[in-house]
C-alpha cells in the first residue's frame, strides 16, 4: 500500500480518535478524560471529512464537541469531589479489556479479509474499495430533500422531531422547581 496524503491524514485522524478514546478510559482525572473525549470526537470528524461527508463532520464538531462534550465538562466541574480520584474502586478492567478485544476481533473478521485465510471460510462482508473519485458527494441540498420528501425519510424525521420536543418539555418539567 502506497502512502498518499489521504492515507497520511487517515493515519493522523485515526490516531487522534483511537488514542483519545484510550486516554478517556485510562486517565484518572475525569476532566482530562472529558477533554480527551473531545479529541477523540474531533478525530472522528476528520474521518468524516475523508469520507467526503463534510456536513456530518461540521455537525459532529458543532453538536458533539461544541455542545454535548461541553455539558459533560460542565457537569464534571460542578461535582468537584469526583475529580482526582486516584484509586480504582473495582477490578473490572480485565473483563472489559477482554470484551473490547473480542469486539475488535469480530469487527476485524467482518470488515477485513484477514480472517478468511486463517479460518478457511468466508467470514468477511466482502467489502470492495471504492475509488475516491467514484464516491458520491452528498450535498446539503440532497440531505434536506431526503428529510422532506415522502420517498425519503420524512416520517422518521417527524417522529424524531416529536420525540425531541417531548424530551425537551420533559426536561423542563423535571428541572422546574415546584411552584405549589
Amino acid at each position: 500500500m502506497e502512502l498518499t496524503w489521504e492515507s497520511l491524514a487517515f493515519l493522523i485522524f485515526s490516531v487522534l480518535s483511537l488514542g483519545g478514546g484510550l486516554a478517556v478510559v485510562t486517565l484518572r482525572n475525569l476532566f482530562h478524560s472529558a477533554l480527551m473525549l473531545m479529541l477523540s470526537l474531533f478525530g472522528t470528524a476528520g474521518l468524516f471529512v475523508l469520507l467526503v461527508a463534510p456536513f456530518l463532520a461540521a455537525v459532529q464538531v458543532l453538536v458533539y464537541i461544541g455542545a454535548i462534550a461541553i455539558l459533560i465538562l460542565f457537569a464534571i466541574m460542578l461535582t468537584r469531589t469526583i475529580m482526582g480520584v486516584q484509586t480504582t474502586y473495582n477490578s473490572q478492567w480485565i473483563g472489559s479489556a477482554i470484551a473490547a478485544l473480542l469486539v475488535f476481533g469480530l469487527l476485524l473478521l467482518t470488515f477485513t479479509p484477514l480472517g478468511d485465510d486463517v479460518f478457511d471460510e468466508q467470514l468477511s462482508a466482502n467489502l470492495e474499495e471504492d475509488p475516491v473519485d467514484d464516491v458520491d458527494y452528498v450535498t446539503v441540498e440532497e440531505i434536506g430533500i431526503a428529510f422532506s420528501t415522502r420517498a425519503g425519510f420524512v416520517l422518521p424525521f417527524e417522529i424524531v422531531s416529536l420525540l425531541l420536543t417531548a424530551a425537551l418539555i420533559g426536561a423542563i418539567v423535571v428541572a422546574r422547581e415546584d411552584e405549589a
Partner: peptide, 23 residues
C-alpha cells in the same frame, strides 16, 4: 459547500478553550 455551518462549529470550539482556562 457548508461554509456557514463551518463558521458556527469552529467558533463553538472557543467555549472549550474558556472552560479549559477557567478550570
Amino acid at each position: 459547500s457548508i461554509g456557514v455551518l463551518y463558521f458556527i462549529s469552529v467558533s463553538s470550539l472557543a467555549t472549550i478553550a474558556v472552560v479549559m482556562a477557567g478550570w
